[in-house]
Simulated scan of single mutants.
Amino acid sequence: MFGFLGIGIVFVMVFGGYIIAGGKIGIILASLPFEMIMIGGAALGAFVISNDSHSAKQTMKDIGKVFKGPAWKAQDYEDLLVLLFRLIRIARQNPLELEGHIETPGESDIFAEFPRILADHEAIDLICDTFRSASMNYDDPHQVEELLDKRMEAQQHHAEHSSHALQAIADGLPALGIVAAVLGVIKTMASIDQPPEVLGKMIGGALVGTFLGVFLAYGLVGPFSARVAAVVAEDQHFYSLIREVLVANLHKHPPNICVEVGRQNTPHDRRPSFNQLEEALRSGKKEAA
C-alpha cells in the first residue's frame, strides 16, 4: 500500500508542480515514447548484460516486495517458536521420533501444521540440517553458531542481489538520460535552419531525456532498490530467530528457555507477548498429546 502511495506522491508532486508553474505537459508527452525507448531500452539491455537469467527473474519477482512488504508476519514468528519448541521437546524425549520429522519434513504431521513455514525451503533446511548435525554429535554450540552465521551470511548476500541490481540500474539512468539528450541535440542541430519556435520544441524534447533519466533514477528505481533491501533485511530476522533458538538448544537450555531466547530476538512489531506465546505453547502441547 505504501509503495503505491509513494509512487503517487512522486508523480503528483513533480508533474503537478510543473503544470502549476505554467509548464506545458504536451512537450513531455510528445517526447516521452521516444525517450523511454532509448533510456528504458538501454537500461534494460544493461540489466540483461550484467545478470544471468536466474538473477534477472529473481529481481523481477523481488520488485513485488516493494508493494507486499516482508513475507513473514507476526503470526509466522509465533508459529515458528511453537514449531521449534515442539521439535526440541521431541529431540530431548525421543531422538528416534525426531529423525522421522527432520528427514522427511514434507511428510511430518508437525511441519504440516505450519504450511507457510513448510513452504520455505531455506527455513526448513536450516532447521532440519541443524537438528541432523546435533544428532550426529556435531553439537558444539560455538562451532554450530559459526557455521550458521556463515550460511546465513551467504543466504543474505544472495537475497540482496536484486537490490544491488536495481541500484546499478538507478546509478546508470542519469547517464543514459544524458545520452538521449545528446542525441536530441544532434537532431536539433541538423535542423538549425528551422524557425525558433520549432527549435525550441526540439530542444525541449531533447531535455526530456535528461529529466527522464534523473527522474527514473531518484524517483522510482533507486527507492525500489532501497525498499527491496529493507524488506530482505526484515525477513532475515526470521532465519536469525531459528539460529538463536537452535543454538540455545545446543547449550542444553530447557525448551521453554530456548523459545524465550527466540521471542526476545523477534522484531518488536512482530514479537508475541510472553503470555501469548505461553498460551500458544500450551495449545501445542494439548494437540501433541
Score class of each variant (00 low, 15 high):
Ile7Lys: 09
Asp120Trp: 03
His157Ile: 15
Met60His: 02
Leu220Phe: 14
Ala206Gln: 12
Ile28Gln: 03
Phe274Gln: 10
Ala154Glu: 10
Gln236Ile: 05
Leu241Cys: 14
Phe15Asp: 12
Ala165Ser: 14
Ile28Gly: 02
Gln93Val: 09
Ser53Arg: 13
Ala56Lys: 05
Val82Arg: 06
Arg243Leu: 05
Pro95Tyr: 13
Leu83Met: 12
Thr130Asp: 01
Asn51Trp: 08
Leu96Phe: 15
Ala74Ser: 11
Glu103Tyr: 02
Leu216Val: 08
Met36Tyr: 08
Arg89Tyr: 07
Val208Asp: 00
Gln156Ala: 04
Ala248Ile: 02
Leu32Glu: 06
Gln143Met: 15
Glu146His: 14
Ile242Cys: 07
Leu241Val: 15
Val259Gly: 11
Gln75Arg: 04
Lys201Trp: 08
Glu146Trp: 04
Val232Pro: 00
Leu80Trp: 05
Tyr239Ile: 08
Asp140Val: 10
Glu234Gln: 12
Gln167Leu: 12
Ile242Asp: 07
Leu126Asn: 06
Ala159Cys: 03
Ile169Ser: 15
Gly41Thr: 11
His268Leu: 13
Gly204Gln: 00
Phe114Leu: 07
Ile25Asn: 07
Arg243Met: 08
Phe11Tyr: 08
Ile102Phe: 10
Leu281Thr: 04
Gln236Ser: 01
His158Lys: 09
Gly26Ala: 09
Val232Ile: 11
Ala159His: 00
His251Ser: 01
Met60Leu: 14
Arg282Met: 12
Gly205Cys: 07
Gly45Phe: 01
Asp269His: 06
Gly64Lys: 09
Gly45Ser: 08
Leu241Phe: 05
Met36Ser: 12
Leu148Ile: 07
Gln143Asn: 12
Ser55His: 04
Pro141Lys: 06
Val259Ile: 15
Ile25His: 10
Ile257Gln: 05
Gly23Gln: 08
Gln143Phe: 14
Gln276Tyr: 04
Ala134Thr: 00
Ala289Tyr: 12
Leu281Phe: 15
Leu83Ile: 02
Ser162Cys: 06
Ile28Lys: 02
Val12Leu: 08
Met60Gly: 09
Tyr218Met: 06
Val66Trp: 02
Leu32Phe: 13
Val198Leu: 08
Leu199Gln: 07
Ala42Ser: 12
Pro115Leu: 09
Glu122Thr: 15
Glu99His: 00
Ala181Met: 10
Gly100Phe: 03
Ile9Asp: 02
Glu145Ser: 15
Pro70Tyr: 01
Asn94Glu: 13
Met13Trp: 05
Met152Val: 01
Lys24Asn: 15
Leu148Tyr: 05
Leu83Arg: 11
Gly3Asn: 01
Lys285Phe: 12
His54Phe: 12
Val10Asp: 07
Leu241Ile: 15
Ala170Phe: 02
Phe274Gly: 03
Ile20Pro: 03
Leu176Tyr: 07
Pro141Asn: 09
Glu234Cys: 07
Pro141Val: 11
Glu145His: 14
Ala119Thr: 01
Thr210Ser: 14
Val259Asp: 11
Phe11Thr: 05
Ser283Ala: 15
Thr130His: 08
Ile90Leu: 11
Glu278Gln: 14
Gln143Gly: 06
Leu5Ala: 10
Arg116Gly: 02
His157Gly: 10
Ala226Phe: 04
Thr130Pro: 10
Tyr77His: 13
Lys65Asn: 10
Ala56Gln: 11
Ala217Pro: 04
